[in-house]
Amino acid sequence: MLTNLFDGVALGMLLFVLAVGLSVTLGLMNFINLAHGAFAMAGGYVAVVLMRHYGVPFFLCLPIAFLTTAIAGAILERTLYVRLYDKSHLEQVMFTIGLTFMAMATADYFMGASPQIVDAPPSLAGNVSIGDLEFSRYKIFVIVFCAVLAFGLQTALTKTRFGSRLRAAVDDQRVAQGLGIDVTKIFAMTFALGSGLAGLAGALGSPIISLDPIFPLKYMIYFMIVVSVGGVTTITGPFLASLLLGVADVAGKYYVPTVGGFIIYTLMVAVLIFRPQGLFGRPVKR
């Protein structure tokens, strides 16, 4: 019971770092980016290749994965995404599904279709026992790491100049623009940061969630649940939604394995029906 909760929290924390960038970009530009998972996958593969072929230590892979995907995100944003902000949601959906498919096929081409087996670094291998209970060292690391990251993000958002500008832009873009805030620039930076975080989480998650070419599609629904249930107006919303989803996913698979994802999907639909703006979201002002 406690172990399940622990596993769920670890998964939830990871989901939060995976999805937080998507939540902010959606809130900021009302842009539906279904390709977000591709960045996470890219981060995971970067770490795998570096570790396996170049012997780069795991802890160095994390920042590299972050930087690589952040740069990739920045480039894609400036060259392609920027053309789609004023287009319809249908076009955004088509475009980002297209990118997702391309990323999946590319991953398949270079890395093969089978899931990558990644071991946790030796210093984090094995379990810690507390009483009768065993906790994976690596998952403890993931929880602590993500918690620190979440705390850092929240602080950055509330305490820094960039954060306050970002919040202003999410709240009311036109007013923000009137105050001399360069929304386009803010968005480009947020997009890069969000992609980088996804890449980082992809690398971080590779020892505990399976990394394969269908990753972006498989986790797309998870990300979308996080942002739609968590709402896009805060980051505490997605954070709570991630934890909830992580715990529900682990518990659901453990206690009622036969129904699989059924519970999660049903819960999501139910939440969205009763609170279309998300469980923790404020209704968006017109």
Partner: peptide, 18 residues
């Protein structure tokens, strides 16, 4: 038919997955 485009996407996708 409730909510915005994103909610619609998620609800339709969710129903299909169910």
């Amino acid at each position: 038919l409730r909510g915005n485009d994103l909610t619609k996407l998620m609800v339709t996708l969710g129903i299909a997955l169910i």
